[in-house]
């Protein structure tokens, strides 16, 4: 355990190097967000202040604000590129020789990366939310707030395991960047980044329920806003946990297959 604390320590120092980068990323990210919010405001004004698929304006604005927070806490940043590069450049050999588990190692780095990013992003994002505070609704209930917290952690785990598994494809394919981008594109729309998933036509929604995508971002936010309550909320949380376990097992499996294929190019 102690050696992983060491990794965390190194991770923090490494990530601090990118603090300016993180700051710009968080600050620039607010501009498209503002644009989306203004777009929705124009839509609501055209609708005579009514609702869109059961969302009032405040709920819709809150949706995007919570998405921004959950995304800052859970999104995989450079980790997948780094893993793919480690494999491609043969850097992974050194981990095979050391008594260190690569998945645990990467996970420590992921957690530190998110922690540092969140600390840096708190200033611009916090000011932004403070400015819009009259639109920010509170969690639907105490129960919802607690499930939200648990679900955010599961979201982070799911994000990490899926990205990790994708990056491991570098054992077989030379250029994983395009695959990562394709996945990212799907996640962007089917994860609820662009809009709340429950404004989609019901047929598409019911298909999405059989995929992990809603659990990559949308689910915790819908719990927070009270769109999912009672039994459905607990079932959702259990399903999310199921996806996390599944993604973890898949990551282990792909690793064990990949390592057999690995030939330490340039190592």
């Amino acid at each position: 355990m102690k050696k992983y604390l060491h990794v965390v320590n190194i991770g923090i120092q490494n990530q601090l190097v990118y603090r300016t980068n993180f700051f710009f990323r968080a600050a620039f990210g607010l501009i498209p967000l503002t644009a989306t919010l203004m777009l929705w405001r124009a839509i609501y004004e055209g609708n005579d202040g009514g609702e869109v698929a059961g969302y009032g304006l405040a709920q819709m604005v809150s949706y995007y604000l919570i998405i921004t927070i959950v995304d800052a806490l859970t999104a995989v940043n450079e980790d997948d590129w780094q893993i793919a590069a480690d494999i491609k450049d043969g850097n992974i050999s050194q981990f095979l020789l050391k008594p260190i588990d690569y998945l645990a190692y990467r996970f420590c780095l992921f957690v530190t990366g998110r922690a540092i990013y969140t600390v840096v992003a708190i200033v611009p994002v916090g000011l932004f939310i403070l400015y819009l505070n009259r639109y920010l609704v509170a969690p639907a209930s105490v129960e919802a707030a607690m499930v939200f917290g648990a679900s955010v952690i599961l979201t982070a785990l799911l994000q990490f395991f899926i990205s990790y598994t994708m990056a491991l494809l570098a054992f077989w394919v030379l250029e994983v960047a395009t695959l990562i981008f394709v996945l990212f594109a799907f996640e962007y729309i089917a994860g609820g980044h662009l809009f709340p998933l429950d404004i989609l036509p019901p047929a598409i929604q019911s298909i999405l329920e059989f995929t992990p995508f809603p659990y990559l971002l949308y689910f915790p936010v819908s719990v927070y806003l009270g769109r999912v309550e009672g039994d459905a909320m607990w079932t959702g949380l259990a399903t999310q946990a199921g996806w996390v376990v599944g993604a973890f097992l898949l990551a282990r499996f792909v690793w064990s297959r990949g390592i057999k294929k690995y030939s330490a190019v340039g190592g």
Partner: peptide
């Protein structure tokens, strides 16, 4: 070819975003 696919996907994404929005409203401004 793969990059063309990726870009097409993103373009489709933007179009479907607008399609979904317009399934709930007739006009934006």
């Amino acid at each position: 070819l793969m990059w063309i696919v990726v870009e097409t996907l993103w373009f489709g994404l933007q179009l479907s975003f607008m399609a979904v929005i317009y399934s709930h409203t007739d006009r934006i401004a």
